[in-house]
Amino acid sequence: MFTGIFVTLGVVVFFQILARMLISHSGSFARPLNYLSGRLATFSVIYFSVLAIYFEIVVARYTHDLNFVDFRLLLLFYVTIYLNKRSSVTIILVSSLMRIYLWGFSSGTLLFFLFTWGLYTLILGLTSISRKLELRRIYLIGLLDVFVGGMWLLFAELKLPYFGTISTSKALYNWFSFVVMNAVLEFGITHLNAEDNYLTLLSQKATTDPLTKLSNYLAFKEEFASQYAKFYNLKTPLTMVAIDIDYFKRVNDDYGHLAGNVILKAIAKIILTETAKVPEAKAYRVGGEEFNILLPNMDLKQAGIFSHRIQDRVRYRIFTVNDEDLRITLSMGVAQLQTSDISANLFYERADQMLYHSKGQGRNQISLEPQQDKNS
Rank of each mutant, 00 (worst) to 15 (best):
G4P: 00
L9T: 04
V13D: 01
I17E: 05
S26Q: 15
G27W: 14
S28M: 08
A30P: 00
N34D: 15
S37M: 09
L40S: 06
F43R: 06
V45N: 03
S49F: 00
F55S: 06
D65A: 14
F68N: 04
V69G: 09
F71W: 05
L74S: 05
L76D: 01
L76C: 07
Y78A: 03
Y82D: 04
S88G: 00
V89R: 13
V89S: 09
V89I: 13
S95F: 07
S96M: 05
L102P: 00
L102G: 03
S106E: 01
S106H: 05
L110H: 07
L111I: 12
F115V: 03
T116L: 11
G118F: 08
Y120T: 04
I123Y: 09
L124W: 08
G125Y: 04
T127P: 01
I129F: 08
S130A: 12
E134M: 08
Y139L: 14
L140H: 03
G142A: 12
G142K: 08
V146M: 10
V146D: 06
G149N: 10
G150V: 05
L154M: 14
E157N: 07
L160A: 09
Y162V: 01
F163I: 12
T168S: 04
T168N: 11
S169T: 14
K170R: 15
W175G: 10
F176Q: 11
V179Y: 04
L185I: 02
F187E: 04
A194V: 00
A194F: 07
N197C: 08
Y198Q: 10
Q204E: 10
K205V: 11
A206W: 12
T207L: 15
P210T: 12
T212S: 14
K213S: 12
S215G: 04
Y217W: 11
A219E: 14
E222I: 08
E223C: 01
F224D: 11
S226M: 15
A229P: 00
F231M: 08
Y232N: 14
L234D: 05
P237D: 05
T239H: 06
V241P: 02
I243M: 09
I245N: 09
F248W: 02
N261W: 03
L264I: 01
I267Q: 12
A268Y: 08
A268Q: 06
K269R: 15
K269T: 12
A276N: 09
A276C: 01
P279H: 10
E280Q: 12
A283G: 09
A283R: 08
Y284C: 07
R285P: 01
R285Q: 06
F291I: 07
I293H: 04
L294F: 10
M298G: 05
K301C: 04
H308T: 05
R309M: 03
I318L: 08
F319A: 09
T320F: 07
T329Y: 06
S331V: 04
S331P: 02
V334Y: 05
A335M: 10
S343W: 10
A344L: 05
N345F: 10
F347Q: 14
R350D: 05
Q353F: 11
M354R: 11
Y356K: 13
S358I: 03
Q361L: 14
Q361V: 02
Q361Y: 07
R363P: 04
R363K: 07
L368F: 01
L368S: 02
Q371K: 14
Q371M: 09
